[in-house]
Design a protein around this nucleic acid. Structure first.
Lengths: 224, 224
DNA sequence: GGAAGGTATCGTACAAAGTATGAAATGGCC
DNA sequence: GGCCATTTCATACTTTGTACGATACCTTCC
């Protein structure tokens, strides 16, 4: 009844669920989630399409699996250590990971089956907040707030037509030119006086918002 | 030989880009974005597949179009009126709209071409913040913070395996049972002491986080 | 060593989906 | 009615997911 889980000899590195999912992440990173097909995945693995079906039931399972893999890449906060710096570190890591795998955000909406890495991650974060002195209820408030911010920020970053500090001018300008300043006066002001200025980087906004949120939570916990 | 329908009572409403996109939203609402195919869309319109291609260049354009339609559903904040209540109203509306069309969140990540309704929306929000006294730079900070929160919250809500105030127990319990309490102690605590309690509704967290954010921004603007 | 039997890989095939191409139908205007 | 632009559709080709069964390979027991 129990399958033999020897796993001793690994001289030829056969296919495995692990390898399949990692290859799927690589394909999605390279060409977007739309480029991830069973055939492209098999190609990445140097194998024929139907071979992957021995390790996953169907494509849905692949999508669930790679979302969990991505969650596993996010640094866990340490239980001992200042809760604010731990949360800050975790948030920065999450943002970095989601920038590396932006397609994961698009999948989140449709995946409602959290994997083990996802659960472990949530458990660790909840643990840090509880240890910091937040009540169970307040922990739920705080966690929802922090994670909403992190995911939402990553989502906005992914939706930007440019990335990094240099591209804003190149892409914002054409968009702006299509519409008169009368139509979107405030956007034009924002663009010309701020976003198109050299050195502007949307990513820098991240620290500000996170700081605001953590400050508020700290005040809350102290004033209780 | 040929039937003349013209004189008949049934007026034939011709296809149009508008109708095509609205039908696409209806299909996606009903069966998820995965169920939106050219064929299903044509079926919804009572028309043959290739007919829709006279109004959109390809499916990508449909996706861009329905995202913009969804943005158009969000209530614009009014320029005159207390900025906080306007922002609160707009945020609540955005959340409601995104709950009605959760697939739009999944599309956001891959759509980098904002449509007119999207631009109009952003323009209105920026306008309210500027009028409230925020500097251009501070407006960028504030807007990124608020919208990150709203999108992220909606994304988390969409990713929940249950909806509303009743389903939590039904779905959280099976997940929890699959893992021992040793493995995810904090999640188990959170589930048993809070989430599984009758009446718990994740959606209620929204107000808390939004309040924290708006309070902080208000403090900022006053201290300037 | 060799056969048995399980496991991993693959070849073939089909259904669903996007869409190119051009024909047919329809409606407006004289 | 006749002419033309616009709208709708029929056909067909390509890509994708995956069912089904065959094959290659590896372990185990004689």
């Amino acid at each position: 009844m129990s399958k033999t889980v020897t796993g001793g000899s690994r001289e030829r590195v056969p296919l495995s669920r692990e390898r399949v999912l990692r290859a799927a992440v690589a394909v999605a990173d390279a060409g977007g989630i739309g480029s991830l097909t069973i055939r492209s995945l098999a190609g990445e693995l140097g194998v024929k399409p139907m071979s992957v079906y021995h390790y996953v039931a169907n494509k849905e399972e692949i999508l669930d699996g790679i979302v969990d893999l991505v969650f596993g890449e996010i640094e866990l906060p340490s239980a001992d250590g200042d809760w604010r710096s731990e949360m800050r570190r975790r948030a920065a890591s999450a943002r970095r990971v989601l920038r590396r795998h932006p397609w994961a955000l698009g999948l989140l909406e449709s995946r409602t089956a959290p994997g083990p890495a996802t659960l472990r991650h949530h458990d660790a974060v909840v643990g840090v907040l509880r240890r910091a002195g937040f009540s169970v209820e307040m922990t739920a408030h705080a966690y929802a707030l922090i994670d909403s911010y992190v995911y939402g920020f990553a989502l906005q970053e992914a939706a930007l037509p440019f990335h990094g500090s240099d591209g804003a001018a190149g892409v914002t300008r054409p968009i702006m030119q299509k519409f008169s300043a009368d139509e979107y006066p405030h956007l034009v002001e924002m663009a010309t006086e701020h976003i198109l200025r050299p050195g502007y980087d949307f990513g820098d906004e991240f620290e500000f918002g996170l700081g605001v949120i953590l400050d508020s939570l700290a005040r809350w916990i102290r004033g209780r």
